[in-house]
Simulated assay, not measured.
Amino acid sequence: MAELIVVRHGQASFGADNYDSLSQVGHEQARLAGDALRDMGWVPDRVITGTLTRQKETLESMGFRAGTPEEHPGFNEYDFHDLLHVRYAGDVPVAVKGERKTHFRTLRETIFEWQDGGIVGARETWAEFETRTGDALRFATKTDARRVLVVSSGGVIGQLVARALNAPVRMMMEVNLQVKNASFTRFVFKGDRFMLSEFNATPHLEFAGRADILTYS
């Protein structure tokens, strides 16, 4: 069986004008993630990211940019800014934008509504998100490579886990909210078989003195 490790990008710039870039902590998380894979002797023979800056910066800080990394937009996160904008008709409450607990509670509710066919007028429907993440998975696994590294985002990882487990639709978001920055989620695959092997592992962030760099956004 071949292996696919999906790494969530490092901490992005929550609350900043440009969310789509890594914070200083995010770069350090990514560096430690890359070191951990090399220490385990796990060096990819195929590397893929989405097209988002925070995903590309994570890969660069991991130190796996030898050659030309591939890109697939199906590994991009859903556009949560757009979903919230549509839900609130362009007037997103200040608390939703700036308070973490309020933001993620509201986001969870918004994704559930989106999955149910709501949030009409958003740039992407839930069905389109399902389709493109499925396309991205096929792109990554229809390969002769034995070790595939993907840098993606929490919502995509949640969807891939739910798909591998044949879980109810709601499970995507419940998993999404648990995914730590720079964590490893490992799948094994062969042909059409695609199975979850390890979820949300952060051995590189769990040493004494590193508690302050374990983050979820």
Rank of each mutant, 00 (worst) to 15 (best):
F75L: 15
E77R: 01
V7R: 03
P44Y: 12
L149S: 03
L149E: 02
T185I: 02
I5G: 03
H204L: 09
G63E: 01
A182S: 06
R163L: 08
S152P: 00
W114Q: 06
D144H: 13
H72C: 10
A208M: 10
F184G: 03
A66T: 08
Y216S: 07
R100F: 15
A12G: 08
M173R: 14
F14P: 05
A122L: 08
T131C: 04
D192K: 07
K56A: 09
A66L: 10
N76Y: 15
T106W: 09
K56G: 01
W114I: 15
K180S: 11
T202S: 15
G50E: 13
V188H: 10
M171D: 13
G10S: 10
T185R: 01
V25Q: 05
I5L: 08
S13P: 00
R38I: 12
G74E: 14
N76C: 15
V43Q: 12
R87M: 04
G158R: 04
D20H: 01
T143F: 01
D45A: 07
R193M: 09
D17L: 05
T133S: 08
W126Q: 13
Y19W: 08
A162G: 02
N176P: 00
V6G: 02
K180L: 13
A127G: 05
S183G: 05
V92P: 00
A162H: 05
R132G: 00
V156E: 02
M1Y: 09
P69L: 06
T51E: 11
F14K: 07
V161Q: 02
M62T: 03
E113G: 00
K142P: 04
K142M: 11
A95D: 14
P44R: 10
H27C: 11
F64Y: 09
F139T: 11
E57V: 03
A122T: 04
D79H: 12
R186L: 14
V92N: 02
K180W: 13
H103N: 12
V150I: 07
A145T: 12
V96D: 01
S23W: 00
D192S: 06
E130H: 08
D45N: 13
E57I: 03
F194W: 02
L149T: 02
Y216E: 09
G155N: 08
L160C: 01
E206F: 12
S61K: 08
V86T: 07
V92D: 05
G121T: 09
E124Q: 10
F187Y: 01
R31D: 08
L4I: 14
H103S: 05
G191V: 15
S152E: 01
V156T: 08
A2Q: 13
W114D: 10
T53C: 05
F14D: 09
P44K: 08
D212S: 09
G34C: 05
H85E: 14
E70A: 11
L196A: 05
G74F: 14
T102N: 02
V150E: 01
V175I: 14
T215Q: 01
I157N: 00
E60D: 06
L196D: 07
F139A: 11
E198Y: 04
D212H: 11
R138T: 15
Q24L: 15
R170P: 01
G90T: 14
P168M: 10
E28K: 06
R210P: 03
N18S: 00
R65F: 13
P73R: 13
V43P: 04
S21R: 10
I119H: 08
